[in-house]
């Protein structure tokens, strides 16, 4: 039943469309670099010349931040939360219910297109240069690269499911102000995107480990720098797979409720 051709077209279309909005590409890259500078400086200052802290070397920590910024560039190139909210409010998404395709999947594939465009034109060139010029620790084992790529991809899917589901909550809420802020806070802190989980206070670290957000940044980053190694890689990816299933079911539930609401009440 899955119509590859159709979804492939969505991806291709949004790839080409991204090119029209050239300003978006440069601007996103610009702010990505500023945040990289910020977190790089913060961690340099926190280490304050020490070779290692909490068993993690400075070089590894810096690599963690650079990889994390790369991934946040990847994740940030998809349809953002506010845009989903906007599409719900204007009724664009309700209209798409009448079309012969699955709406969440359509957006996912459109995201693939725009993310891929942003990656090859902006992110990869920049980060390849960074990896050349900065003293970072790169994995030697190709298997680690493979595991990282896979984990990063699963992380992308988890993020997508959560962001889409949060966005679709707009169907049920009059005002989304608070929802947004909680989402962004969880996204930045609990995912380990700027502070790795091992530097958290114990209780907060175990709290975060029961949540899906760690799968987005913490797990791929930690695999990359070797903090998650050996058989732990498999269990971590297992945890990610568990969360991608759970968040997908959550997204489906929200979507079904939302589409029912549209059908019954006309949006």
């Amino acid at each position: 039943m899955f119509n590859y051709r159709l979804y492939w077209t969505f991806a291709k279309k949004s790839f080409l469309r991204s090119a029209v909005y050239r300003f978006d590409v440069w601007s996103r890259l610009g702010s990505n670099v500023i945040f990289l500078l910020m977190w790089g400086s913060i961690w340099t200052a926190l280490y304050a010349g020490r070779e290692e802290a909490g068993g993690v070397s400075f070089q590894a920590m810096l690599t963690y931040i650079v990889v994390s910024q790369f991934l946040s560039g990847v994740n940030g190139a998809g349809t953002p939360l506010w845009e989903i909210q906007e599409k719900v409010r204007t009724g664009d998404i309700s209209l798409e219910l009448m079309r012969p395709f699955d709406v969440p999947l359509r957006y996912l594939f459109a995201d693939f297109g725009s993310v891929f465009f942003y990656m090859i034109t902006a992110l990869l060139p920049l980060y390849i240069i960074l990896f050349f010029f900065m003293d970072l620790s790169l994995p030697n084992d190709p298997l680690i690269w493979l595991a990282f790529s896979f984990a990063a991809f699963i992380g992308f899917l988890i993020r997508y499911c959560i962001e889409m589901a949060f966005g679709l909550l707009t169907f049920f809420l009059v005002e989304t102000g608070g929802v947004e802020d909680i989402f962004y806070f969880a996204m930045s802190l609990l995912s380990g995107s700027v502070i790795p989980l091992w530097f958290f206070p114990g209780w907060l670290a175990s709290f975060a480990s029961y949540l899906p957000f760690q799968g987005i940044y913490y797990i791929p980053n930690a695999i990359f720098i070797g903090e998650i190694a050996g058989y732990q890689i498999l269990t971590s990816i297992g945890v990610q797979l568990f969360w991608v299933v759970v968040t997908y079911i959550f997204l489906r539930l929200v979507w079904n409720k939302a589409s029912q609401k549209v059908v019954v009440q006309g949006g």
């Binding site: 090119a19 029209v20 590409v25 034109t121």
Partner: peptide
């Protein structure tokens, strides 16, 4: 001017 196609898209980036 609006460029079309893949190459046009890449070109209009610059």
């Amino acid at each position: 001017k609006r460029e079309t196609g893949f190459l046009g898209a890449m070109k209009s980036l610059v």
